[in-house]
Amino acid sequence: MDSDDATPAAADRLARLRAGAVRAGERARELDRSPALQQAVKRLRGVLPGDAHFGDPLSLGGARHTEAVGRAVVGLTGDRPGVTRELGLGGLQVWQSVLERFGRGGGEHEVVLVFTDLVEFSRWGLRAGDDEVLRVLREVGDAWEPPMTERAGTVVKRLGDGLMVAFADPAAALAAVVEARRRLGELHVEGWSPRMRAGLHSGRPRRVGGDYLGVAVNTAARLGEAAKADEILISGDLLRRLDATTVTTRRRRRMRLKGAPADLEVYAVEASG
């Protein structure tokens, strides 16, 4: 066989190989886009340990390695749903859960969580109108946010007429809330007296981006909801981290808060200084 005959044969083999690679790629893309396979993988993620929603913006806002890799997976796949994307995020989901189980994921730091809101604000707002509501909310923010941030509190989110704040220091958290209540009491609004209620709890919530999730968060929020006007409720966990000589409390018995531990001890702060 001369070289002239060999050249067309080699070119033909190369063309067949390329065509096969194209067909294989197309088949792989079809499988990746298969709705049935995507649903199967999502169901699998639902029974795997860890956060089955790992991969959404809320779960990828942090600085840990799993979150950084998760952002890379999402970046490579864009907004396109696919089996490859789900498998990659599923693997990271399991890995993150393993890290957390052994104390290397979220929740390794003790955090004091504070929830505050305004009593009877919604009822007053219906009468006052939007313009007046916005004006008063700005004044409220000027009154109760500085005491938080001046004591190294981080405002996690603003909840309409409320705040969620995180602290590292229990004493600073309580002092900030007491000062915020005092400053709020100096505001004068026609037809309504701004009064605050607050709940504080310490625990090891999971950090997810700029937010916190977990039982500790639910507990602090439920304490805030259960408080009366001008009342500050704290958990027994937080009270045990405070200097007993600087705070006077009264035990609130027979309180069962939905979403909080059944054995939660609740105390109303009567004086702090």
Rank of each mutant, 00 (worst) to 15 (best):
L213F: 06
L213M: 11
G214I: 03
G214K: 03
G214M: 07
G214T: 01
V215Q: 13
V215R: 09
V215E: 14
A216E: 08
A216T: 02
A216P: 09
V217D: 04
N218Q: 14
N218W: 02
N218K: 05
T219M: 00
T219L: 01
T219I: 05
T219F: 00
T219C: 01
A220V: 04
A220L: 10
A220E: 06
A220K: 05
A221W: 03
A221S: 15
A221L: 10
R222S: 10
R222G: 02
R222W: 03
R222V: 10
R222K: 12
R222L: 08
L223G: 02
L223S: 03
L223I: 10
L223E: 03
G224H: 09
E225D: 15
E225R: 13
E225V: 14
E225H: 11
E225S: 15
E225W: 05
A226E: 15
A227M: 13
K228V: 14
K228H: 14
K228E: 15
K228P: 00
K228T: 14
A229H: 09
A229G: 15
A229D: 12
A229P: 12
A229Y: 07
D230I: 13
D230Y: 08
D230N: 15
D230F: 11
D230C: 11
E231H: 13
E231R: 09
E231M: 11
E231Y: 05
E231T: 04
I232K: 01
I232T: 13
I232W: 03
I232G: 02
L233F: 12
L233V: 05
I234A: 15
I234T: 01
I234M: 15
S235A: 12
S235I: 02
S235P: 06
S235F: 06
D237R: 10
D237N: 08
D237H: 07
D237Y: 01
L239V: 05
L239P: 00
R240K: 14
R240F: 04
R240P: 02
R241W: 01
R241N: 07
R241P: 00
R241Q: 15
R241E: 13
L242S: 05
L242Y: 01
L242F: 05
